[in-house]
């Protein structure tokens, strides 16, 4: 006799949701940190360094995320480094996010008018001050809609972590569905949870975009 979808099942989904949120946060914070470094290196003006970061971005944008997760989880295990499933997917998502965010911010940095950097140089400001005080504050504003858009993709993308046995929201839904034989109800609840997470972010992102468009008209 299969159990019905009740409170315990709902609690199980909630724990899956927790892991989804945690994985997203780790990947986003880690990805932001590494992505900032990538973006700065990608625009540093040194040809060799720019090439290396370009290849880095190319590799992680040009291969399936699934494959990258496999490499971190199973590939590293072959070399004797056995990682916990959460650690493995966290590393995989962080590295992947760093490439995407690095590329988004590279574009934003280059979208700040050249005259801003020139004025800063003419005033005698050094690279660190030029970036911190002049370029990045403007680049972050420019990149905000795209960054939020990427965050939404990341939340939904974490369902791929199920492939290496990590139980996040989508995987939890699958398990509960298999136990209760109520897939429509279970996946309806799972979908609603993703929606509650993502929709406010999407809304915020498009509002931000509209405000930026307005500001640039002035």
């Amino acid at each position: 006799m299969a159990p019905h979808f009740g409170l315990p099942e709902f609690g199980f989904l909630l724990r899956g949701l927790q892991w989804t949120v945690l994985l997203t946060l780790v990947a986003f914070v880690g990805g932001c940190t590494a992505g900032l470094a990538i973006a700065l290196l990608r625009t540093c003006g040194h040809k060799g360094v720019e090439w290396i970061t370009r290849i880095y971005i190319g590799i992680f944008q040009g291969t399936p995320l699934l494959l990258q997760l496999f490499v971190v989880y199973y590939g590293l295990a072959l070399t004797g480094l056995k990682l916990d499933a959460f650690v493995a997917v966290a590393i995989g998502f962080t590295v992947n996010a760093s490439a995407f965010l690095g590329e988004i911010w590279r574009g934003a940095i280059q979208a700040v008018p050249r005259g801003q950097t020139e004025a800063a140089m003419a005033l005698g400001l050094h690279y660190s001050s030029r970036m911190r005080d002049i370029v990045m504050p403007q680049a972050i504003r420019i990149s905000l809609p795209a960054t939020i858009g990427y965050l939404v993709q990341l939340i939904k993308g974490t369902s791929l972590a199920a492939i290496v046995g990590f139980i996040e929201l989508a995987r939890a839904g699958q398990i509960v569905s298999n136990q209760t034989f109520q897939p429509l109800l279970v996946f309806g609840v799972v979908g609603a949870m993703y929606f509650i997470l993502c929709w406010p972010l999407s809304w915020w992102g498009s509002r931000m975009e509209a405000r930026l468009a307005l500001a640039s008209q002035r």
């Binding site: 004025a119 005033l123 005080d133």
Partner: peptide, 23 residues
Amino acid sequence: FQSFNLFPHMTVLQNCMLAPIRA
């Protein structure tokens, strides 16, 4: 410069104070 190149995210005062403080 021809195109002014003021820093748009700073007030007029902050625009004028940045270089003396930083450089």
